[in-house]
């Protein structure tokens, strides 16, 4: 089940003081699918990384009952490991590892008792995404872009994360691969009740979200529900 997000007075500033992002308030119910759009450099990815606790920020970001910004760096890391899955534009896989090892990457730093279950879940996700056992041992360097991004999705969802944060997940894919990926991502998120927040310029992807936020010049300028 997903986590609800509550933001208040969020401010992210550059080292020299320039405000990169300012969000006075935002509420996202658990299990929502939210798209974030806006021009390049508007602050979309900054919001995404702030939501993951990877940026220094002021204000409050509350996921469920946890106030992310009040946690230290290591507690934030543990929070991410438990609750957040991330997907990146250029996949960010370990090219030398197989699909299975990439998808189960988090098992390496999980408590020993959780590792086998996480690996099983990763294999299950890969199979769901069409990357069955016959190719899961191949190193991902031989994979197409679409296959790689599906491995990345398997990695993000293998931990049963309550929240998925995706930064331009279809930007490196051709249309056919992107469409298949959108289907997979949305299906998985809805099936698991995951809160999905996607930064994208891809209208096809954004249109599948429940809600779309628009960010310009570091500020939230529009917030609309879709008919998805």
């Amino acid at each position: 089940m997903g986590l609800a997000l509550s933001i208040s007075d969020l401010r992210v500033t550059a080292p020299r003081g320039r405000v990169l992002l300012s969000v006075p308030g935002l509420e996202i119910p658990a299990g929502s699918l939210v798209g974030i759009e806006g021009p390049s450099g508007a602050g979309k990815s900054t919001l995404l990384y702030a939501l993951a606790g990877l940026l220094a920020a002021e204000g409050r970001i509350r996921w469920g009952d946890d106030d992310l910004l009040s946690l230290g760096a290591e507690k934030r890391a543990r929070f991410r490991a438990r609750n957040i899955g991330m997907i990146f534009q250029d996949f960010l896989l370990f090219e030398e590892l197989g699909a299975g090892d990439n998808a189960a990457l988090s098992a390496l730093f999980r408590p020993r008792r959780d590792r086998a279950a996480l690996r099983a879940k990763a294999a299950e996700r890969l199979a769901f995404l069409g990357l069955g056992a016959q190719i899961s041992d191949r190193t991902v360097s031989s994979f197409s872009g679409g296959e790689r991004q599906r491995v990345a999705i398997a990695r993000a969802t293998a931990t049963d994360a309550a929240v998925l944060l995706a930064d331009e997940p279809t930007a490196s894919l051709d249309r056919a691969a992107a469409d298949r990926l959108i289907d997979d991502l949305v299906t998985l998120a809805r099936a698991n009740g995951t809160t999905l927040i996607v930064v994208s310029h891809d209208a096809a992807l954004v249109s599948r979200m429940d809600r779309v936020l628009t960010i310009r010049d570091g500020a939230l300028t529009a917030d609309r529900m879709t008919m998805a």
Binding site: A73, E74, R80, A81, L105, S106, L108, F109
Partner: peptide
């Protein structure tokens, strides 16, 4: 550095 950042983003502790 990108792989290291990825591990941190996935929730790996600094010690890992």
């Amino acid at each position: 550095h990108r792989q290291i950042a990825l591990l941190r983003a996935l929730g790996a502790t600094a010690r890992f």
